[in-house]
Design a protein around this nucleic acid. Structure first.
Length: 430
RNA sequence: GGGUAGGUAGUCAAGUGGCCAACGACAACAGACUGUAAAUCUGUCCUCUUCGGAGUUCGAUGGUUCGAAUCCAUCCCUGCCCA
């Protein structure tokens, strides 16, 4: 691919993917095939959609003809990044860390092209590989000597903690040096001249470029992307059910699709640029459609389509669509219009087993909801039923006195419970 | 080490002997209205409940008291100032 063909920085700018950029970065990217990296923390056994933007940065980088390195933080994960954290983090045990590392690595491998035939084939790196050989004394002599505490303390992530209530351990204080050394190592060993990341990483990244300048006399570049926000100020990627993960086992493709489909209009406008590869005029067209027919939600649909396809592939996308159709396309249709096969194969629905005998005898709705496990207690179940938030087989439960018995069974063995409009639970009798 | 201000539910933040499961705000969940959107209004929001209540909370542990988030003692943690 021709590096000149597309100006990466221009492309990323209009998508709203650039927050801070170091002077000269654009010129460097135009000059030659440049190696760039992003680090991923192994704080969990799957990445979630918060990591999607950094992943996309690497994909864009590779598409523009440059060489991406995805780094997993085996070493940095042991220290803990203070950026954006108001208090000291708990350290992960080594077992968990290694497990997470392997999982995260496997995921990252899905999104980049590692085929060795490409001159700009992606690479994977683990900073533990170089850190395990460095002794503490070596590190403070060879690395620490180049950076002053004054410099380190002026970083936002550090200053906030020094000014804040909770203080900061020496361990977390050193984090930026550890990450800075990564960049230095990649610079000297892999000719990597670019680091990218979320804007919260800016401080850590500049420590790296500083180290490269002072220790190697070299010049390195960087840019960051804005942290993804929601219009209502909430945390991006969190729902009442928790994080939206990239791992289909942890978050089914159906729920993943639903997350994007449920985006607010204001968010969808930003996200369509951020999370898809659609060209400028296609997006402009979608925005126009959205304003003409907001009820059709072309933005959300396209967004959900593109992102699900990217993360879960054709199969995952089709499954997500099929399940969405079943639940939402004719909501007024009675529940028994769903075939047994539909009920069995639907994704993203929590499933519960319940003894058939108890239902045959008849049981009150509150006890039923609590004993199946849909609600954690009778009190909680009762409150939501009283508030009108529970439906059984798509009919709203009007009273807590409702008895659940055989007459409610679909296909002789299922009961479909809804909590609110969008949360489905399937109870199967056994 | 000395001085000083603090530690209250997911977060912020009132409360300084009984009317306290604890004002208020935000977040969250649900309902109405909608477009599986936003805004608005309403309900829920420590745990359990036979809906009458019951149980466990206000950094920790002991104590005073009929009664403590509130008073006393000791300890732990944090900020700030001084050494």
């Amino acid at each position: 691919m021709d590096i000149q063909a597309m100006n990466l920085i221009e492309e990323l700018s209009w998508r709203g993917m650039i927050q801070d950029i170091m002077p000269g970065t654009e010129a460097q990217l135009k000059k030659e095939m440049t190696t760039g990296y992003i680090g991923f923390d192994p704080t969990a056994d799957s990445l979630h959609i918060g990591s999607l933007v950094p992943i996309l940065l690497l994909v864009h980088l590779q598409k523009a003809g440059h060489k991406p390195i995805a780094l997993v933080g085996g070493a940095t994960g042991m220290v803990g990044d203070p950026s954006g954290k108001s208090e000291e983090r708990n350290l992960l045990s080594e077992d968990i860390l290694n497990h997470n590392l392997a999982c995260v690595k496997r995921q990252l491998e899905k999104y980049l092209d590692f085929s060795p035939s490409r001159p700009n084939a992606a690479e994977m790196a683990n900073n533990y590989d170089w850190f395990r050989q460095i002794s503490f004394l070596d590190f403070i002599r060879d690395v620490g000597k180049h950076i002053t505490v004054n410099y380190m303390s002026s970083k936002d992530s550090v200053r906030k903690r020094l000014d804040g209530e909770n203080g900061m351990s020496f361990t977390e204080f050193t984090y930026q040096l550890v990450q800075g050394y990564d960049f230095y190592w990649l610079y000297t060993n892999k000719n990597c001249k670019l680091q990218m990341g979320g804007s919260d990483q800016w401080g850590n990244i500049t420590t790296g470029t500083e180290l490269i300048r002072r220790k190697a006399g070299g010049e390195a570049f960087a840019f960051t992307c804005p942290l993804v926000t929601k219009a209502d100020g909430g945390k991006f990627g969190k729902t009442e059910k928790g994080n939206i993960w990239l791992d289909p086992v942890k978050t089914s493709p159906y729920l993943f699709y639903q997350f994007w489909l449920n985006a607010k209009d204001a968010d969808a406008e930003k996200w369509i640029k951020l999370f898809t590869f659609l060209p400028k005029d296609t997006i402009a067209d979608l925005l126009r459609q959205q304003s003409e027919h907001p009820e059709a939600r072309p933005l959300q649909k396209t967004l959900a389509h593109e992102v699900t396809l990217f993360v879960h592939g054709e199969e995952g996308y089709h499954k997500a669509i099929a399940d969405t159709e079943k639940f939402f396309s004719n909501q007024s249709a009675p529940a028994d219009s769903l075939s047994e096969q539909d009920l069995e194969s639907i994704d993203g629905v929590a499933r519960f087993d319940y003894p058939a005998a108890k239902i045959a005898r008849g049981i009150d709705i509150v006890t039923f909801l609590a004993e199946t496990g849909i609600f954690s207690s009778k009190g909680e179940a009762r409150k939501l039923v009283e508030g009108g938030g529970v439906s059984v087989n798509r009919k709203k439960v009007e009273t807590v006195k409702l008895a659940v018995d055989n007459s409610l069974l679909l296909h002789g063995k299922y009961i479909l419970v809804q909590k609110g409009k969008k949360n489905y639970y399937l109870v199967k009798t056994t």
